[in-house]
Amino acid sequence: MRIDLRHLRAFEAVAEELHFRRAAERLNLAQPALSRTIVQLEDVIGEVLLLRTNRRVELTEAGRVFLAETKAIFVRLDSAVQQARKAAAGHIGQLRIGYTDFAVSGQLPSILDGFHRCYPDISTELIYGSTQQQLDKLKEGAIDFAFVTGPLLEPDLDRTVVQRDRYVAVLPKHHPLAEQPEVELADLAREPFVLGSMSGWSHYRRQLDALCIQAGFLPSVAQEAYNSEGVFGFVAANIGVTVHLQSAGSFNRQGVVLRPLKGVTARVCTEAAWLKAEVAPVQQKFVDFLRAWVPPD
C-alpha cells in the first residue's frame, strides 16, 4: 500500500484536533474509518505518529515532524493547483520570440515592456534571425512568434503589423548631402552603397531595389554588413551611403546623419507572425496583446 492524500488529510485533522471524534466530524467520516486510516498510515511509515489513551491524543516526535512535512506538501499542492489554473488561463508560461534588427530598433522593446507589465509571470526567450530564418523556425516549431519584414504572403501564418517605417538616407557626417534637410533618392544614384547582406536582408533589399528602380537606378553595393550596427559603422567610415528605416535613429551612431527622402511615401512594415494552428493559452494572450497594439505613425 502507498500513502495518498486521504491518509495525509486524515492525519492532519487528527493531529490538529488531537481528538478522533472531532477530526471525524471535520472530515465527515465515521470514526472507525478514520482510526483505520491512521493505523494504515503508521503501518506504511513504520512509526507511531499518535499516542492514544482513553482521555487524550498526543503527537509523537515522529508525528510532529510528519505533520510539518504534511502541511508543506499541502502548501505545494495548493501552489501547483494555482499555477495550473494560471497556465490554463494563459497567465503563466514562456514565449519564444524571433526578431530582426528592424524590430528591436523599433517597436519590439515597447511591445515586450507593455506585455510584461500585463503578464509578469510570462517569460520570453528572444532569438535573433533574418526574416527567412524566422519563418523557417516558426514552421519547425522552434519559435512561437516571428517579428519579420513584411509583407508576408504565407497562407499558413496569421500576422499583424506592429511597425510602419519611412525610408531615410544615412550619410557620412561630412557628406555634401548631409547639409540638406531632405535628400532626393535619385541624388544617391552614383553613390556607393553599404547594405545588409543579401543572405540575411533579402526581404528588405528586394523592396529597396524596387524603390531605387522607380528613381532610375539600382544601388551599387560597395560593402555588405550582417546587421544594422555594421551598416552604420561602415557608413561612418565613409565607405558609402545607405537607405535605412526611420527607426534606425535609435542607434545614435556617431559619424552619420539621417535625412528624410523627399517625395518617398512608401513604408516598410514589420509584422508579427505565428502559425494559424491552435495556439496555447499563453500564446493567445500575446496574440490578443499584439492585435490591440496600434503602430505609431
Rank of each mutant, 00 (worst) to 15 (best):
5 L>A: 00
7 H>D: 00
9 R>T: 00
12 E>F: 04
12 E>R: 12
17 E>S: 14
20 F>I: 10
22 R>E: 14
26 R>Q: 12
30 A>H: 15
34 L>V: 13
44 V>Y: 13
49 L>A: 08
49 L>Y: 11
51 L>D: 11
54 N>C: 00
67 L>C: 03
69 E>N: 10
70 T>D: 03
87 A>G: 13
87 A>S: 13
92 I>W: 04
96 R>F: 10
113 D>H: 14
116 H>D: 12
117 R>A: 15
120 P>D: 12
129 G>T: 04
131 T>F: 13
131 T>Y: 11
134 Q>R: 13
142 A>E: 15
144 D>M: 14
151 P>V: 04
153 L>E: 13
163 Q>A: 00
166 R>G: 10
168 V>Y: 00
173 K>W: 05
178 A>W: 11
180 Q>L: 15
183 V>E: 05
187 D>A: 15
189 A>G: 03
202 S>K: 04
203 H>G: 00
207 Q>A: 12
207 Q>W: 02
208 L>K: 03
212 C>S: 06
216 G>T: 03
217 F>C: 04
225 A>E: 05
239 I>Q: 08
240 G>C: 02
242 T>P: 01
243 V>F: 01
250 S>K: 11
255 G>A: 06
260 P>R: 08
261 L>H: 06
264 V>K: 06
267 R>E: 09
271 E>G: 06
276 K>Y: 06
283 Q>P: 08
283 Q>K: 15
287 V>C: 13
